[in-house]
């Protein structure tokens, strides 16, 4: 009797864990369609990338990816539930099945891709770590920062990059550990550190929000590669394909000049065969990934093509004022290169 109870418990536990693992690897597409809602992991708040407004509507560069995926899968960009994730909870939230997609400015690295069992589906923003200093410090290059005190956010890749960079250049520094961007700005403004380092996009936003941006400069050196990429769970390749090609569709749309303004027109009378295939006018590419014919059209209509999203959320027209730089199309000297839709 006792033995059978024990065995029963073990069997039940095994089935339980097996079931949970199955869910994590199972058919995310089916689950999303059944739910009628995409659950998207986003940042708890990062200027330009993800932030809710006064009435609680999320917007931003990462949020646009969520909207595009929801539009591609469910036909409606509004059918997204945003789950704010912190730096500590983001990957666990994804692998435990709490979110379907993680669009949260996470750096694509080897160990995260392999050891943490994530699948990064392609880079949506090429970032890099930079330094900001006060102009009156008289520093014009990061190489002159020997012995400086530097404000650095703990527990991030930026912390490791900083150590690497100073070691490689045989310099020393005094770290001032901070917990969040807001605290970093405060410490830097109060003069607790000579330089503030974080991703260049974050530095630009921070500098733009200062009362006296003209008194601060961002040093030209970019000391690390920070390819920020949306991620999905490892193992559900079909779902990975959907998110990957949704991002590619946004990038390709910019390359082919498909915008949210002219998309309806191009869908019916475009001469370009690639555009026809992309928008479902000729081949039915959607069927191959389990979506309907209009998937890419819906995704692009959600908030425009890659260039439109960039311009609306973080581009030069916005107060953040980021230049396209590496994030320009390959035809413009950038790194964005969507594989052919064929």
């Amino acid at each position: 009797m006792k033995k059978s109870v024990l065995l029963g418990t073990v069997a039940a536990t095994a089935a339980f864990i097996g079931g949970a693992a199955m869910a994590a690897e199972g058919d995310t597409l089916k689950a999303v369609k059944a739910r009628g809602e995409l659950i998207c992991g986003v940042n708890t708040g990062l200027v330009g990338f993800a932030a809710p407004d006064a009435s609680g509507n999320w917007a931003g560069f990462d949020v646009a990816i969520c909207k595009a995926v929801a539009a591609a899968v469910l036909g409606d960009p509004a059918k997204v539930k945003y789950v704010p994730t912190t730096g500590q909870t983001r990957f666990t939230a994804l692998s435990s099945g709490e979110v379907d997609v993680l669009a949260r400015n996470s750096t694509y690295t080897f160990s995260r891709d392999t050891d943490l069992k994530l699948d990064f589906i392609g880079v949506n923003y090429y970032d890099g770590q930079g330094f900001m200093v006060r102009k009156d410090l008289g520093v014009t290059s990061a190489k002159e920062l020997d012995g400086a005190t530097i404000c650095i956010q703990t527990g991030t890749t930026t912390e490791l990059n900083l150590a690497d960079y100073f070691k490689a250049n045989n310099m020393s520094y005094q770290p001032v550990n901070i917990d969040s961007n807001a605290e970093g700005e405060q410490q830097y403004m109060a003069g607790a550190c000579d330089a503030y380092t974080t991703d260049a996009s974050g530095l630009a936003a921070t500098r733009a929000a200062f009362a006296d941006p003209e008194n601060h400069i961002i040093l030209p050196e970019i000391i690390s590669k920070e390819p920020l990429a949306p991620a999905v769970r490892h193992g559900d390749n079909n779902w990975g394909d959907i998110v990957r090609w949704t991002l590619n569709a946004l990038i390709a749309a910019e390359e082919y000049g498909v915008t949210s303004a002219n998309i309806e027109e191009l869908a019916t009378n475009s001469e370009n065969p690639e555009v026809q295939r992309l928008l479902g006018a000729s081949d039915d590419l959607g069927k191959m990934i389990g979506l309907d014919k209009d998937w890419a059209k819906n995704a692009i209509k959600a908030s425009g093509n890659y260039g439109e999203i960039f311009a609306k959320t973080i581009g030069e027209e916005t107060p953040i004022g980021l230049a396209r730089g590496l994030n320009a199309q390959w035809t413009q000297g950038g790194l964005l290169y969507a594989p052919p839709f064929r």
Binding site: T44, G45, V47, V83, T86, T89, N181
Partner: peptide, 20 residues
């Protein structure tokens, strides 16, 4: 706030500050 809920002190302040 550390499990992604919006507590008034840091959670709400963080996303309010995330607006430019």
């Amino acid at each position: 706030v550390f499990v992604g809920l919006f507590d008034p002190l840091k959670g709400v302040s963080d996303f309010v500050r995330a607006n430019f």
